[in-house]
């Protein structure tokens, strides 16, 4: 499903680059009815260049997800925000 696709495709930078800081990046994506990801926009960057780059790279890797279930969104597309967080236990 959506979470799993982004979870598996997203590779945060090694922890020695982000120093285990509690950072996150918020993106907004648009999913078309057929599952195509038509828009991917970082609306709140983390401020860490390597971290934001890793999130942007994920957008290039996930260009299509499962088609929208009936009744979700306006019938044509569905907007959802995704908050990317590193491993908080580091």
């Amino acid at each position: 499903m959506l979470h799993d696709r982004f979870y598996s495709e997203w590779v945060p930078p090694p922890t020695d680059i982000t120093s285990g800081a509690r950072i996150s990046a918020l993106v907004k994506i648009r999913i078309e009815k057929d599952g195509r990801v038509s828009n991917f926009e970082i609306i709140k960057p983390s401020g860490n260049a390597a971290f934001d780059e890793s999130v942007a790279t994920t957008a290039k890797r996930v260009t299509e997800v499962d088609p929208l279930p009936a009744g979700l969104g306006n019938g044509e597309h569905y907007d959802v925000k995704i908050n990317f967080e590193p491993d908080s236990e580091q």
Binding site: F6, I82, N83, E85
Partner: peptide, 8 residues
């Protein structure tokens, strides 16, 4: 809606 993708 917002979903969280957390490596934690």
């Amino acid at each position: 809606p917002t979903i969280t993708v957390s490596k934690g």
